[in-house]
Design a protein around this nucleic acid. Sequence first.
RNA 1: GGUCGGUUGGCCGAGUGGUUAGGCAGCGGUCUGCAAAACCGUGUACGGCGGUUCGAAUCCGCCACUGACCUCCA
Length: 491
Amino acid sequence: MIQEIQIYNTLTRRKEVFEPLVPGKVGLYVCGPTVYGSPHLGHARSAITFDLLFRYLKQIGYKVRYVRNITDVGHLIADADEGEDKIEQQAKLDELEPMEVVQKYTNLYHKAMAMLNLQAPSIEPRASGHIIEQIEEVKKILNSGYAYESNGSVYFDVEKFAAENDYGKLSGRKIEDLISNTRSLDGQNEKRSGLDFAIWKKASPEHIMRWPSPWSDGFPGWHMECTAMSCKYLGETFDIHGGGMDLTFPHHEAEMAQAQAAHGKPAVRYWMHNNMITLNGQKMGKSLGNAISLEDFFTGNHPLLEKAYSPMTIRFFMLQAHYRSTLDFSNEALQASEKGLERLMKAVAKIDSLPVSASSSINVAELSANCYTAMADDMNSPIAISYLFDGVKMINSIADGKSTITSAEKDALKSLFRIFVSDIFGLKADDQAESGNSEVLSEVVELLMKLRMEAKANKDWATSDKIRNELTAIGFDIKDGKDGVTWELKK
RNA sequence: GGUCGGUUGGCCGAGUGGUUAGGCAGCGGUCUGCAAAACCGUGUACGGCGGUUCGAAUCCGCCACUGACCUCCA
C-alpha cells in the first residue's frame, strides 16, 4: 500500500526519497502559531500545507503522529534577549492576563483552522506546559559545554558549537558571515557573542510570566520549546519537521544546534518549509502590518477584499499552488479559484447519478495513477488537481451522453474523487447559506416560482421576467432547466 | 553588503531538453421565449542578450527587474 514518495529536504536542498525511521510510521513536528494575534492567511498556508502532508501520508498507509505546538511564552519582540514578550505586550494592550491573551487567540486559531477543515494534530503541546522539559534540555546543553550561564540567563555558545559542528547548514549561512554581520550591533555584555541566543532568560522584575529554575526565575528561550516538545513526543530523532520558510533562520537553525548539543545527534531527518503568501509581491506578515486575518476573508470585511471568500475557497486557492512557491494574493486569483472549486464540487456531486454502460470510454486507472504520481513528487497538489479536472471533463461528458462508463469504473471514479477531494485535499461542499427560517422562505419562493411558471405558460414574459429579475436582485439564482426550474440563494 | 530564490499567455499557476499542464477570464457553440446557469470547443506564452545542442521556457554565461532571509514573523 505504501508507495515511494519524494519530498524536498531543505537541509540537502533537493528532493529525496522519503524513508521513515520506523517502517510504516511517521513522526511529524510543525511549528504552530505564536498566539498573540488573529490568525491570518500566512498561518493558513502553513497549516494547510502540513495538513495536506498529514492527510496524504495517512492515505498512502502511514501511521502518523502529528505534533503542532502553540507558542505561548518565550517569544520576544525586537531583540531576542532584550525585548518584551509578545504575549505580555499584547496582554497590556488588551488589558488582559497573559493567559487570557493566549486563550483568546488560541481559540480564534482553532476556530479558523476548523473552518478550513484542518484535521486536528495528534498532539498540540503548549510551551508554557513544558517548562520542566525545557529546563531539562537547558541542563543537558550546559553539561555538554555548548552553553554558559550569565547573570541568571543561559546562552547557547554558537561559536563554540560551530567550531565542532555544522551551524548554518540548514539556512545556508556561513558562520564567518554571521559573525561579521552581528559584530556591529553588539551591545549586550551578558553574551559572549552577538550570535549567541538565550535558552533560558532571567525575568526582569516587571515580567509576569516566570518560572523557577536553577539559574533564575525566568522563562525559556523561544527555540527551546520546539526542541523539548518534539523530543518528548517524537523522540530524540524523528522524521519530518515542518514550518514556514521564514523560520529557517534563526529558529530552525537554533533548534538543530540545540538538539545536537543536548543529545549528541541530529533530531530531524527531513526539513520541510512552506513558502510565503505575498500581497502585491511582498510577504504578508503581522509585523509588516499587511496581514489580512482569516476572519476578514470569511466575512469580506477588509478594504482590500472585494467580497467574502469561503474557507474552502482559501484552501483550494492554496492547493492550486505548490507549497514551496510564493503565492500572491489577489481578488482576481481568489475568485478564479472560487469558480474552479465550484465546478469541481458540482462534478463530484454528479458522479452518483451517472448512467452506466457495458463498456467504458474512459480510463479511471490511468487518471488515478496520475494523481498519485503527482502527489508522490513532493506533494505536487496543483498537478494532481489538474488531473482531477480531467476527471471533471470525463464526468460531464458521461453525463452528457458523449462518453460511457461501466459500473465498476464508476465505483473506481467515485472512490478516486472521494480519496483526493475529500480525504487528501480536505475539500468539502461549502455549507449552504444558513437561513434559519429556510422552510418558510422556501415555501414563499416556491409560490413565486409557481406564479412565474403560470405566466410563462401564458407567454406572459413581462410578468415571468419581473419575478425572476426581482428575485435575482435579492440574491436568488433562478435557473430554467429542461426539467423545470431550480433556484438557490446565493450568499 | 552577504546568502538563496523568482521573472511563464488578460489574471493565477504547473512544468527542467523535443509532445495540449490546469483553473479563471475572453471568444465560438449547444440549450433557452429571451436571458442566466450549465455543458462542449477554443489560446502556442515562457524578462533581455549571447552560448551549448539536430532541437531550450527547460542547460551555461552576462544583464535587467523583483522577492525572501541575514531582527520577530507561517
